[in-house]
Amino acid sequence: MQRILNALLQFRNPILYFFLLTISLSITNNRSAFHEYTLEKYGFYFSSKLYAFQYSISNYFNLGTVNRQLLEENEKLKAVELEINKLPLYPGALIKPQRFPYKLKKATVLKNSFQNQRNFILINQGSSHGIRPEMGVISNNGIVGIVHSVSKNYANVISILHQDLKINVRTTKSPAFGSLVWKGGSPLEFKIEDIVTNANIHVGDTIITGGMSFYFPLGIPIGHITHLEKNEENGYFSIDAQLFNDPSQVYYVYVLENQDFEELESLQKNIVQ
């Protein structure tokens, strides 16, 4: 106590000065609207800096919640986007409304790989969430794969980076369709097979899903054509394509549920029999 008093006595002049300075500043503040405004401006500057700092910290801890909210929002928006995308591709689609039997379910990627020639992805949604085998899986900018096997809470997805998986594709300009197959090297480089040479396609065309399977609706953008060569011997193009999105680096995916799947499946069985 004695020391505190001593210190106070020793620094009595600066203390008195700053005390009186505060008083005079408050007098200035009260008596002049201009000074009040200017001081308020500085005060606001500092407080806003402080709040911004506080906000950035709380923001960081809220990231998980925000991510989840964004994912939910994206799930809805993606469904709308898919439905809208395919419309202009059907002739007369704007006049006759089409059914859109796909529904989206969001999922998080738990395990992903691209080193093997046949890669699989593990996602955190399973049969209890309504996931069944043979559902298409897409990401925010491209397709990811097809569900292979399902347990109660998890599902195994055949990655698009799988040499046996062929995806039905076409370009936005031409209705000729072919199959997209991974080359096995870089996760971005694919080749497209089975497009006949009389089709009207060019380098730079956007590749979209063809809609000739039960897994993916028509019109999901996948990538673009980088190289085009006419193979005169067999009458097919040999096409190199590059994906928009690296499938080995997706963390959130959407599983496409085709609500007409069983109906279509039973139809096909009848044909086979």
Binding site: N13, P14, Y17, L20, L21, S24, L25, I27, T28, N29, R31, S32, H35
Partner: peptide
Amino acid sequence: GGAHTIASLTVGF
């Protein structure tokens, strides 16, 4: 305003 007060106080200090 308080300009004289602050300036004079500072000189005194």
